[in-house]
Write a protein that binds this DNA or RNA. Structure first.
Lengths: 172, 172
DNA sequence: GTCCAATAGTTGGATGTCCTAGTATCCAGT
DNA sequence: ACTGGATACTAGGACATCCAACTATTGGAC
């Protein structure tokens, strides 16, 4: 009985990097490539849970930002800033959320250039139901040990901080 | 003189999760969200470096797989399996690489369903130049400490393993 | 007061990913 | 052989992201 043991493709690539004389970059390559693949795995799990709720992760994030805001309203620009995405991505997400009746566009009273987004009751309901499912099906069992979860958060916070995601002084 | 120090949005969300009684899922949420954002940062850095070479990261990965293969050729199916992407994504990447003259489609001698992809001399040249730039500009300085790089690789390998990325117990 | 640079949002285009469906081909069981 | 189920790839569609360009509006400089 013969078993072919599939090797980890990333560990393979890292080995090749070292063999090619790129030892100095091998770990970085492995880290970045792992990040790509881990993202792919995580997003797939999340999207699968969100699908029945009729939202994607991008829209879910917008919804939760509004859900947790004081008045249930936020300017487009602020949403983009918080989520660190391009303005056009916000437009896209809001368009679809609005069509689904989960949010509403409101004219900014003091600045006619700006647009305020308001979450609707249906939006709140979806946010709560989706979060409940995500918490039980994904976030509570992320697929790695508790200590790894902590380390991962710490390391990625370091990475994000160095990339200018937030003021390093506030990194905690 | 007042400076507004932007807080880490993810640390914020984690706090809210705990306040809402979702403490058990708070870390998982923070880990997954951090992963999404870290991916966004990494892919942006990588794509910026690859852009002058006329390839994207998706195509670069295909190119490197071929570059390191014994004969410079691989079946489409194997490429998709190694990169863990959908067959249509491979078709897409190969289409563009072929148009750019970096790879070539060849008929599989023994199986008329299959297609073999062969890297061209230009493909090899691009692979080498792009790798050189990536190594010096990204992989050698990933934006986190060396020990963090090691921990990150270890944790993401754990995550990928649990997701079945390289289930060693599986027969083929 | 006027003018111009900066800001907010949208539109259109390029790219990547996945899914569903369809075509061609292979292979094993009867 | 034959037939039906797998396998390999492609076509078309939905989404998300970014960039470049455009419109509308704001606010400061002169």
């Amino acid at each position: 009985m013969t078993f072919v043991l599939p090797l980890d493709p990333i560990a393979d690539a890292r080995r090749r990097w070292a063999e090619q004389g790129w030892a100095e970059a091998a770990d970085g390559m492995a880290a970045v490539t792992s990040l790509m693949r881990a993202h792919q795995i995580a997003i797939a799990r999340v999207e699968a849970v969100l699908k029945p709720h009729g939202v994607t992760f991008a829209r879910y994030e917008v919804l939760m930002l509004l859900y947790f805001s004081r008045k249930g309203t936020l300017p487009m620009a602020l949403i983009g800033e918080r989520l660190q995405v391009h303005p056009t991505s916000v437009t896209n997400a809001v368009d679809r959320l609005e069509v689904a009746g989960l949010v509403r566009r409101i004219r900014h009273p003091g600045d006619r250039r700006a647009t305020i987004i308001e979450i609707s009751d249906e939006g709140r309901a979806v946010a709560e139901a989706a979060t409940s499912d995500l918490n039980t099906q994904v976030f509570s069992k992320p697929g790695i040990s508790d200590s790894s979860v902590h380390d991962l958060i710490r390391i990625l916070t370091e990475l994000r901080g160095n990339a200018g995601d937030f003021d390093a002084a506030e990194a905690r």
